[in-house]
Design a protein around this nucleic acid. Structure first.
Length: 183
DNA sequence: CGCGGGATTGACT
DNA sequence: GTCAATCCCGCGT
């Protein structure tokens, strides 16, 4: 697999919905215990701005969500339901809270290649991603980063739908801010 | 300082 | 379809 080029900061400075769509087909890389695992991103969700009632940042900056207010390209990781970790990548400018949640991947490479991980908690468990990586700079990190690799199925049709698990968000729950591809 | 709930998952009826 | 697991954190007192 000859794709060592990381996605640049400009990629994450773009509008969050665009980043969420463009992350589909890109490669999430996790290096753990000297081993690199590559995962093709197949499902994402956008959480955007201070008014998005589905977002953790809809009220104000707090110790938990402060990463979302920081610079683009950092990992925002939190524990949900006391059981599972969710991985997000921060987008747009500083002080504007926005991020893309990685909801699904397909494992690449010979080991577990082809394995489907549909669900934000499943992929973090498989890739051993927890809160120790919260705030990680994905442009510099040796443990977690994103690569631009042109897989042949890259241009698969992008499906969209409402975000999962945000029924409490009123009108914001109706936004079609979930994106996914079939690989 | 206590209380309630969550950007989920898997097991079970 | 229902429901429990499990704990951090945001918010109100």
């Amino acid at each position: 697999m000859n794709c060592k080029n990381r996605l640049p900061k400009e990629f994450f400075m773009q509008p969050t919905l665009k980043v969420a769509k463009n992350l589909l087909g890109k490669i999430l890389v996790r290096r753990d215990a000297g081993e690199e695992i590559r995962a093709i991103i197949t499902e994402t969700e956008a959480y955007r701005g201070p008014n998005d009632k589905a977002s953790h940042a809809s009220r104000r900056i707090t110790p938990r969500n402060k990463i979302m207010f920081g610079p683009a390209g950092h990992a925002y990781i939190y524990l949900i339901y006391g059981l599972h970790y969710c991985l997000n990548i921060v987008t747009e400018r500083e002080n504007y809270p926005a991020a893309v949640l990685i909801r699904g991947v397909k494992i690449a490479g010979p080991a577990a290649g082809g394995k489907i991980l549909n669900g934000p908690g499943k992929l973090t468990k498989f890739l051993n991603i927890d809160k120790s990586l919260n705030g990680e700079n994905i442009f510099k990190s040796h443990n977690l980063w994103l690569e631009n690799c042109h897989y042949q199925n890259h241009r698969a049709y992008v499906n969209k739908g409402t975000r999962i698990g945000v029924d409490y968000a009123g009108e914001w729950a109706k936004k079609q801010w979930r994106f996914f591809i079939d690989l």
